[in-house]
Computed example of a mutant assay.
Amino acid sequence: MALASLVLLAAGCGRATDTADGEGGGYSFPGGDTVAVRVDHVGGFVPATVNLTRLPALSVYADGRVISEGPTTMEYPGRALPNVQLRRISSGDVQALVAKALEAGVGKPTDFGTPGVTDLPNTRIIVTTADGVKKTEVYALLDDMSHAGLTPAQEQARRKLLDLIKVLTDLDTTLGAGKVGPVEQYVPTKVAAVAAAWQDPGAGVDAGPAVAWPGPALPGASLGEGLSLGCVVADKDAPAVLAAAAKATAITKWTSGGKDWTVTLRPLLPDETGCESLGK
């Protein structure tokens, strides 16, 4: 897919960051939209639009909502909206997941080494505790570490995090039968739209008819010097944007202000406020 300004960002090598001390068991979160546990990927040698609109792999909220990106099809062009899914667990199980993350060492200074690979993203895990937010960020967290040039201790530390991610992403096994609610479609109250000047996808690719953009005027606020990307947030216009996007694809030509745009849509999660939340 042709995108304007394919600015490629490379991730640095990460070590764990100890942002707080203490345990999180029994912690009373300040609000239901507080992120209790989150796993996401940041950086990597990918277009800037990807880094800005990438969804966290998993977000567990204090009120028991669990939000993740569901399966996607291999069709081209892909759908305009990502498949964002919602499930629900009990507050007690939220605390159990926090405890598992802490037991796995999230937030503790750890030597994860630097694998001999390039251009891969960092994996970041955060946990909210009574003493604040703990965070661990690791470059190139891979299942296959056989040729990564790591010491046995570094491999073991990485394996511990990989095992934690499996625990967090397979909640039916982790929490037990009947403990996780059915899959629902996540319906955001706000949708961010990252806009770039329209580029024809090329011969033989049908972008479909142009569609009038139903949200705030594009392109919106600049997302950074040299990016040629703007961002707007549909708030009161979110239902109209979602309805139009349901019939659109990733290469749909949107029209706004007499110009044509390519728009990448990013449903905002409960803890996210606007364009400033993207790529954080």
Score class of each variant (00 low, 15 high):
G31E: 15
L6W: 04
Y139I: 04
H147E: 12
T189P: 01
A153G: 07
G26A: 10
D237N: 11
Q185R: 12
L168G: 02
R124G: 02
T249Y: 05
V46I: 15
V194L: 12
A2S: 13
E75P: 00
V133P: 00
F112G: 03
A210P: 12
R54G: 03
Y27V: 13
L242Q: 08
A243M: 05
P109C: 11
L97W: 10
K135S: 08
E225F: 08
I165S: 04
G24L: 09
L223A: 01
Y76A: 07
P267S: 03
D172N: 15
P121A: 05
I125H: 15
L175H: 10
A153W: 08
E184M: 12
A217N: 03
R124W: 04
K280L: 10
G132Q: 09
D163A: 15
N51P: 02
E276S: 14
C13E: 09
V35R: 15
G176E: 07
C231R: 02
K179P: 01
M145A: 07
R159I: 07
I89Q: 01
Q85D: 04
S90F: 12
A36E: 07
L55R: 12
D170N: 14
D93Y: 06
F29M: 05
A99M: 00
G26M: 11
G113R: 06
R87F: 02
A4I: 05
T49Q: 09
T255E: 15
I67L: 14
A248W: 14
W261V: 03
S59F: 02
C231D: 03
T136D: 01
K280I: 06
I89S: 01
A245R: 06
L223T: 00
L58V: 07
G22T: 06
T123P: 09
E276L: 10
A11V: 03
T110M: 10
L150K: 09
V66C: 01
V187P: 00
G25D: 10
R87M: 03
L52N: 02
L81H: 09
A62M: 07
A196Q: 13
R158V: 04
G132V: 08
D18C: 08
E23V: 11
T128K: 13
G70L: 09
P216H: 06
H41S: 14
G181N: 08
L171C: 13
G274E: 11
A153Q: 15
P82N: 06
G178P: 04
Q85Y: 00
P82C: 05
